[in-house]
């Protein structure tokens, strides 16, 4: 994904949006094929370097070093309080809203530090979308939920907004279920649909990265299956970082898995290796349900 292209769309550049509309289905297929044929994506897309993080005097992350590859799913696992959600929320600086936080080290996305003094946090959050444990649609219609951020950014043109709604809902695998009721309240949706609506809302911003904090923990197995299939499809276009307590889910959806314990990164590797042949005994005990 070209960051410049995203930027132009995000700022409501009409020309870019129109040209995007004109891209034929055929071109999209060619692009997808090209992407598929690319030998590999940037394996160091997100770089976390010597990263410590503190809530006041309490240090919750210790010297984290890891590289997250582009357009792959990375799962963060570990017992409650191990720091995985803190790390996830720091990737778009959500924790900035908490008093008394501080950090050492750095996080780079596509080579740019997320702590660069010139960087606006708002623009970072456009690049790095987030989906929470509990779906949190706004008390608005389905349509307005999806284009909420575009409206905030000044988007007015109906055709552009309509296109964004359709594209985002299609990508979130929700379009067919809601296309005839776009102007009904978002609260009329089921739990799983609401979560997919939140994913559509995150996608509408055209982010590069989607952070998911236990996105299925409140969903039934059918809705969970749909979200997992969606994650699998979304990684074609987005880099996804997911926090989950469900080991089977991490094994199913992720390409790489990182195990955290007491604020430290214990083991990080290909998901298959972590679940088939972990090198660390603590990882082994955790993934096989014997940690305690």
């Amino acid at each position: 994904m070209n960051p410049e292209q995203n930027h132009s769309t995000n700022t409501g550049n009409r020309q870019a949006a129109t040209s995007r509309q004109e891209v034929s289905q055929q071109q999209i297929q060619v692009e997808a094929k090209d992407l598929g044929e690319r030998a590999s994506y940037d394996p160091h897309y997100i770089r976390i370097r010597n990263y410590d993080f503190f809530y006041g005097a309490t240090q919750v992350l210790f010297d984290i070093n890891m590289d997250l590859p582009e357009r792959q799913v990375t799962a963060l696992i570990g017992p409650s309080g191990c720091g995985k959600s803190t790390l996830l929320r720091n990737l778009n600086r959500m924790n900035d809203l908490i008093d008394g936080i501080r950090h050492n080290g750095d996080v780079l996305i596509d080579g740019e530090s997320i702590y660069h003094p010139q960087l606006e946090v708002i623009s970072l959050r456009k690049r790095v979308g987030m989906v929470f444990q509990k779906s949190n649609p706004f008390p608005k219609s389905i349509y307005e939920n999806v284009i909420y951020s575009l409206r905030v950014a000044g988007g007015r043109r109906k055709s552009q907004l309509d296109e964004a709604v359709e594209r985002s809902l299609k990508r979130a695998a929700l379009w067919d279920e809601v296309k005839d009721r776009l102007h009904e309240s978002a609260f009329s949706l089921s739990g799983g649909q609401m979560q997919r609506l939140c994913i559509a809302r995150a996608i509408a911003n055209d982010p590069e990265i989607i952070l998911m904090d236990e996105p299925c923990s409140a969903l039934d197995p059918i809705a969970t299956g749909k979200i997992e299939d969606l994650i699998h499809e979304l990684k074609e276009n987005y880099t996804i970082v997911i926090v989950t307590h469900n080991m089977q889910q991490a094994a199913r959806v992720s390409d790489r898995t990182a195990f955290f314990y007491l604020g430290k990164l214990i083991e990080y590797g290909e998901t298959q290796q972590i679940f088939m042949n972990p090198k660390n005994n603590q990882t082994e005990a955790y993934v096989s349900g014997r940690f305690g």
Partner: peptide
Amino acid sequence: LGFFQPNQKKSMKR
């Protein structure tokens, strides 16, 4: 199973 190794925390029996 490799869980009881010297200097390692014992794993929980399930």
